[in-house]
Design a protein around this nucleic acid. Structure first.
Lengths: 249, 249
DNA sequence: CTGGTTAAGTTGTATATACAATAGACGCAC
DNA sequence: GTGCGTCTATTGTATATACAACTTAACCAG
């Protein structure tokens, strides 16, 4: 049996954090449920309240607990999701690298919502949506196929813009900052049409980002960004910072 | 009639955090420079050391300061940038979904660094590195091939752990929080070995995350996480307001 | 029943104190 | 000079205590 990484003398507040994390992960305290009060933890674990307080505060800052003064500490309904993707504008990205950004507008039109889109936007089938399809190129080589659906109420003049001058992302962001954003990244195989548009072979995998935004009124946009796996990747490098300090509500 | 919401009494540790952030932002303390010690801040600001300690600790957790026991607190070279991707622990992820997490350890050994790894870790070729290879499964289905190289100096007991009990990520994070993290996501085709390990077909694309971490001493770990495109995707959804709120410190 | 007050429980903050752990400087014996 | 121990400065952790702020429930006066 492997021993605990007993390299260092255990720290009391780390032990308590561990105790809390295990209780949360194991379901000993269900989601939304109240965990023992600081006072109870003091008696249970035999540490001072300040030490308990630090442990609970830090676990809370990590997003696993919600604390309410005068009431107690509760296990969060939705634990913090792992991956965060920041909004990015591919035109800006390419220019930042000092390369030439080119764009070709394939479609820019109003379309009736088929079943999937109707569901995503909470509309009836056949309701009108704005739709655009663009291919972005870096130094002449296609790097992204951008397919987008936009709620007309959110961007009434979406179809009248010249997207060779201002990118779709930039125009949409100029309207109203979304209240909520979702990104999903996955790897997919390209169908024949995508292969042709991106100029890739049949066996080349693609990196696909699905991006949805919501305003206070509801779903606003839904985009699918498809990149050739060989010519594009998402990257980030950052200094570790704030998952300790994060406060969600 | 009741008064307009009166200003809440300012919190001492928030004031001190503000004081520190202004000093850092204004260049009053240059990058890399030592800020006043806790004791000096106590005398300067007239708060107790515990309060000063909390303020400095939280600013430090946000990445703006680096603290060295016995030496002092120093302004970090570069302020933290917002992250594209956050660290995630697949075991935690799976358990959070209420599924069964299984892991199979394929390799756990010391290996001599070949050219690429030597370059990444700034070592000479042939220097020893710890190496692990694991397959993670969700409800019995493989969802991640985890290949990792670790600098022995960073985790001397890396090979002695039981990774069926505590995940590699969690163990490594228990040692020392990395100062810097890099993630790169791309789509790749799997070779025959990976296909076999993940139980996927020849034409199925894979989602690959490369993750590297650095401590103050230099590169610490380098991981390659390969997921079957059909069974795994990276996702995130977040409220923009909260994201923005974190910029304030 | 209504409305306000009180009391108890919980988290939030602030302080004083103590000791441990680490790094660097100084001085001393050899 | 070299090596070793000591001292000091600094951060890291732990505790006891106090009071403030907030929530809920109980209670009581009308």
């Amino acid at each position: 049996m492997s021993q605990v990484p007993a390299d260092r003398p255990p720290k009391r507040y780390e032990q308590i954090k561990q105790f809390l994390m295990e209780g949360i992960a194991s379901g000993r305290w269900a989601e939304g449920e109240k965990i023992p009060s600081e006072h109870e933890l003091v008696e249970l674990l035999g540490a001072s309240r300040m030490t308990v307080n630090r442990a609970v505060r830090e676990v809370s800052a990590q997003g696993f607990l919600r604390r309410v003064q005068g009431q107690g500490s509760f296990v969060r309904q939705v634990a913090p999701r792992s991956a965060l993707l920041e909004i990015y504008d591919i035109a800006e990205d390419i220019q930042r690298r000092g390369h030439v950004h080119g764009v070709r507008v394939l479609r820019l039109e109003a379309v009736p919502a088929e079943a999937r889109m109707a569901a995503l936007f909470s509309l009836e089938r056949g309701a009108w949506l704005f739709h655009s399809e663009l291919v972005h190129a870096e130094n002449g080589q296609p790097v992204q196929l951008e397919t987008r659906h936009v709620l007309p109420r959110f961007a009434p003049h979406y179809l009248a813009q010249d997207y060779t001058q201002v990118s779709t992302s930039r125009y949409l962001q100029s309207l109203e900052a979304p209240a909520e954003v979702e990104h999903i990244v996955h790897a997919v195989a390209a169908d024949a049409r995508v292969q042709a548009l991106l100029g890739i072979g049949a066996d080349e995998p693609c990196l696909r980002v699905e991006r949805r935004t919501w305003t206070a009124q509801g779903a606003a946009t839904c985009s699918v960004l498809t990149h050739p796996g060989s010519r594009y990747s998402l990257g980030s490098r950052y200094r570790v910072a704030e998952w300790e300090a994060r406060r969600l509500g």
